[in-house]
């Protein structure tokens, strides 16, 4: 399995030239696409996310690693779907209105794609109405909201309130994250989950998506 470590290391180094070749090589060695994804690409991206969180590396390194990861995923994606590795569902993400910071949100988006979700990224400065409208029209199970500024956090509550008003609370789950956000704040505004970091956010979204599908599916159904 040395090849998987090499994929992870190339990804950590942000080498999008090497990652596709190594990904093909791993497949040629007979390793299942899902294993290449989990133990190669995602393992590497997890290290990148953690190093970024503790300020060991900075945003440019993360962006280059993400490019490398997408280069590898382009090869794996058709194989994963033909192998019957189904999508885990759709997630709408964005930074809330007034907030132009989208680094953390982008990182979560990358990791969610890696975990098999279809991600609709609405970008930054997203209004509450847009989160809900997009989640409805795209048949999403989860809305993920990020804020870096305390001043913009109230928009998260607006989204939760809007879902309640439209009777979608529970069918479309909500998760929030970002530097000023806490588990307590998630509880206070009635959000379904809080993600402390990227890895935890992905785990929570997996649980939420499963719960949302158990409740009889999504908004459009």
């Amino acid at each position: 399995m040395e090849i998987l470590q090499r994929i992870a290391q190339s990804l950590e180094a942000g080498d999008d030239g090497d990652v596709p070749g190594l990904t093909r090589q791993a497949l040629a060695e007979g390793i299942a696409p899902k294993v290449v994804l989990d133990q190669g690409l995602i393992a590497g991206m997890n290290v990148v996310g953690e190093k970024f969180r503790v300020h060991e590396i900075f945003l440019p390194d993360v962006l280059l690693a993400a490019k490398a990861m997408y280069a590898g995923m382009d090869i794996l994606k058709p194989l994963l779907s033909s192998a019957g590795v189904a999508s885990r569902g759709r997630v709408v993400i964005g930074s809330v209105q007034g907030d132009l910071h989208d680094i953390g949100k982008n990182l979560v988006g990358i990791m969610l794609r890696g975990a098999g979700f279809e991600v609709v990224d609405l970008g930054n400065d997203v209004a509450a109405e847009k989160f809900v409208a997009e989640a409805k029209s795209r048949d999403a199970r989860v809305i993920g909201m990020s804020a870096l500024l305390t001043t913009t956090m109230p928009v998260m509550k607006e989204v939760v309130d809007l879902l309640k008003k439209e009777n979608l609370h529970g069918r479309i789950k909500t998760i929030i994250g970002g530097a000023p956000v806490s588990r307590e704040y998630a509880g206070e505004i009635g959000a379904d989950a809080y993600g402390y970091d990227c890895a935890q956010a992905v785990e929570r979204v997996k649980e939420l998506a499963a719960a949302a599908s158990l409740r009889g599916g999504t908004a459009a159904s």
Binding site: V54, H55, I57, F58, L59, P60, D61, I103
Partner: peptide, 9 residues
């Protein structure tokens, strides 16, 4: 932990 940096390093 290594001093002041911008988010771009």
């Amino acid at each position: 932990p290594r001093g002041f940096f911008t988010i771009m390093g």
